[in-house]
Simulated assay, not measured.
Amino acid sequence: MTPGTMEGKVCLITGATSGIGLESARALARQGATVVLSGRDKGRGEAALAEVRRTVPDARLDLLLADLTSLASVRQLAQDFQARYSRLDVLLNNAGLILDRRKVTPDGFEATFVTNHLSHFLLTNLLLEQLKASGASRVVTVSSEAHRFVPLDFLDDLQAERGSYSGTQVYGKSKLANILFTRALARRLAGTKVTANSLHPGVVRSGFGLNSEGIFKHLVKLASPFMLSAEGGARTSVFLASSPEVEGVSAKYFIRSKVAREAKTAQDDAAMETLWRKSAELTGVG
């Protein structure tokens, strides 16, 4: 992207202290945007700011801490952002989690579901008026091709309480939820200048998946030499956040910066509305 094309824009990125989130922050800062990085750990966050400044010395950066397994923390993130910034041009819902054992958060939610979908549903809704007030703003949500292998009956078991726990299946369900959420959001944004799109970043060589303890962690390590770099994985996110080519484009799913056809399950309007309703009930937003 051309340097300076995001001058005057403000971007908020979740999961921005490593991997494709960090590389997305670097790329958008290089284009002149003010980039707000969100992560859980202050030390890692400050290290991420220093790493971006190493290659973009004049980068305009900020750090806001949030734990996306906690809805209270997500609400605090939205409040902290609104206290510091009067506009939001890009919300990049990037943070992701995969586990090989079921973990329940203090709120009582399954950890992968709340981190990958529910927290982003809540954050987006809390910042929606700010996005609308900022004009042609964009909501970009990182999904995955893993969404293709999940049946729609996941809507009856959002917390993965039934049967044996499969981390890859639960992850795939959350990624299907990302696309259904994006399509439902785009429908609600019709008539505004705000767009919502989702994407598959590619199979990326980053720290993702290394927090698991079982076979998935070892598979990630074995496959690492054949994966995209984090910089490569960030390209579609950055394209959707900043390219004039997608101005006004909404409700689409992208791979390699091109519109792709999502699975039929992700095109189900009834499922889309059911997920929105259930997510709204769980988070207390409309």
Rank of each mutant, 00 (worst) to 15 (best):
K193M: 11
F113L: 06
V74W: 11
E161W: 03
D107I: 13
S143A: 15
T168E: 08
L155W: 01
Q76F: 03
A83D: 12
A111L: 00
R101K: 15
S70Q: 15
N93P: 08
L63F: 08
L199T: 08
A95C: 08
F113H: 06
H200M: 00
S86M: 08
V104N: 02
N197V: 04
S198R: 10
L68F: 11
Q169M: 13
V142S: 03
L65F: 06
H200D: 10
L65R: 10
H120M: 06
S143F: 12
A66L: 04
F154W: 13
V194E: 09
Q82P: 01
K173E: 15
F154T: 06
N197G: 06
L91N: 07
N94G: 08
L77K: 00
S119R: 01
S143N: 09
A146V: 04
E161K: 12
H120F: 05
L131P: 04
L63Y: 00
L123A: 03
S164P: 01
E129F: 06
T168K: 10
F81K: 07
A78G: 11
L131Y: 09
N197M: 13
D67V: 02
S144F: 10
L118E: 04
Q76W: 01
T124L: 02
T141Y: 01
R75E: 14
G108E: 08
L128Q: 10
K193I: 07
P106R: 05
T105A: 02
D67G: 01
S134I: 12
L185A: 07
N125K: 15
L176M: 14
L64W: 05
P106L: 03
K132Q: 12
F181S: 04
R162Q: 13
N93K: 05
S174D: 02
T141R: 09
L131W: 12
A186K: 00
S119P: 06
R148P: 04
L63W: 00
P106F: 02
T124N: 02
H117P: 02
S70E: 09
D153T: 13
F149W: 09
L176R: 11
G96Q: 08
A66C: 14
Q79S: 14
F181V: 03
L126Q: 15
T141D: 00
F121M: 02
A78Q: 07
Y171I: 13
L180T: 05
G163S: 10
T168Y: 04
V150W: 10
Q169T: 13
S73I: 07
T105P: 04
T124C: 00
L123G: 02
L128E: 10
A95I: 15
L158T: 07
T124S: 00
L92F: 14
L155E: 07
A136Q: 15
G163N: 11
D156Q: 13
R87F: 07
V194P: 09
D89E: 12
L122S: 08
K173V: 01
T141H: 08
L99V: 14
L128A: 12
S134G: 11
R187I: 11
A146I: 09
R102T: 03
R148E: 05
E161L: 14
R188S: 12
F109W: 07
L189G: 03
L71S: 06
S134K: 10
A78W: 09
G108I: 11
S86R: 14
E110A: 05
L91K: 11
G96V: 04
L91P: 08
D107L: 07
D67H: 00
